[in-house]
Computed example of a mutant assay.
Amino acid sequence: MHDDRHIHKKRFGQHFLHDADILRRIVQAIGPKPGDRLVEIGPGDGALTIPLLRALGALTVIELDRDLIPRLHSAAQGIGELDIVNADVLGVDLTALANGARLRVVGNLPYNISSPILFHCLDHLDAISDMHFMLQKEVVERMAAAPGSKVYGRLSVMLQLACRVEPLLGVPPGAFRPPPKVDSAVVRMTPLPTEQRPVVDRQVIARVVRHAFGQRRKTLGNALNEVMSPEHIVAAGVDPRTRAEQLTPQEFVRLAAIVCESSASAEPFLT
């Protein structure tokens, strides 16, 4: 007898969700409405795709594994219009895909490249109205962490400067096929209004944050010594004796603003 089950590919980080109750709760959290311009990243075998398509009538999905495309087309037959983009999401221009509208982005993200996908979405934030992602629970905890937390870091700062981050529900390994070795969680990210986002160049903020957390046991005066002097740190209203995890996202913005203002301090960023 022919077995047409999909062989899960490790290189794509494939873990397909099959728990009906979890799927229902995710769809409920997304709240899809006809007319929404929704894009799903990594639809897999369509477990979330089909209920979303049923609610929307039309849906775009981005899937790298070409072997899944005939299955998705077949599953969508008679339910709605499914547009499949066969590509690596990191190479997809989400702003162009939005075509002047605002995208709602959802996805069970491959855990091996979840952070790059999140940062890719930040690059297209003005074309996105909200995001609902399934991620490794530990990653969601880092995304939503407050200053002072052991897991507060680069991801926390950069995402919270751009979005409101809300963990929604935990998902056990048994909800997937094959089960991953870690717990998962669903998170909602809502872009902040433009006026609430930093006016300072995000690349400069990112570099300051990377240096600060790159040696998180060191004081900022030491960790940022290639970027700015202790005097500049003080000028930003920050004590050079503090450590990165003690700073709020807005304090990192103030540090980056000082870097931008000082041509001497900005030199490392030009090399």
Rank of each mutant, 00 (worst) to 15 (best):
D4M: 07
A58H: 07
P193L: 02
L53D: 02
L97A: 00
L135K: 13
R102S: 14
Q196C: 05
L90V: 08
V151F: 03
K33V: 12
L255F: 01
N86Q: 13
I233R: 11
A235Y: 04
G42T: 09
I233V: 14
L64T: 07
N99W: 00
F269N: 11
V85A: 04
T190C: 00
I233S: 07
P34Y: 03
K181H: 07
S265D: 14
L125Y: 01
F119H: 12
V165P: 01
Q28N: 09
S114I: 09
V85C: 10
T190M: 02
E245Q: 15
C260I: 12
D123S: 15
R54F: 00
V227F: 02
G31E: 03
L125P: 00
G80D: 09
G35D: 06
R25W: 01
H73Q: 11
I26R: 09
R154P: 01
H73G: 12
N225Y: 07
I50N: 06
A236L: 11
S114T: 13
R24E: 05
G42H: 09
A76D: 08
V151Y: 03
G80R: 13
L23Y: 00
Q246N: 11
A185C: 12
F176C: 05
P173V: 06
A76E: 08
D67W: 01
V199S: 13
E63D: 02
L48N: 06
T248K: 15
L103D: 03
G91F: 02
A206Q: 13
F252E: 12
E261V: 04
L90C: 10
R102E: 09
T194W: 01
D19E: 03
M158F: 03
H2R: 14
P198H: 11
H15I: 06
K150V: 10
S114C: 10
A96K: 14
L103Y: 04
S115T: 15
V209G: 06
V186E: 01
H132G: 06
L59C: 03
H15Q: 05
L270E: 07
R243A: 05
S114H: 04
V27Q: 03
E141K: 15
I84Y: 02
I113C: 10
P173Q: 04
I50L: 14
S263K: 15
E138A: 12
T49W: 02
L161C: 11
P147G: 10
C121P: 00
H8S: 11
V200P: 00
V106F: 07
Q28A: 15
A76W: 06
S229P: 08
R104C: 12
S149V: 04
A264L: 14
R142A: 11
G221V: 12
D239L: 04
E81T: 15
S114Y: 01
R243L: 02
V182R: 14
T60H: 00
V199G: 06
F119T: 14
P240T: 11
S129V: 14
E251H: 11
G31N: 11
I50Y: 02
V157H: 04
D36P: 13
A55E: 10
F133Q: 08
M143G: 09
L72R: 14
S156D: 05
L64K: 15
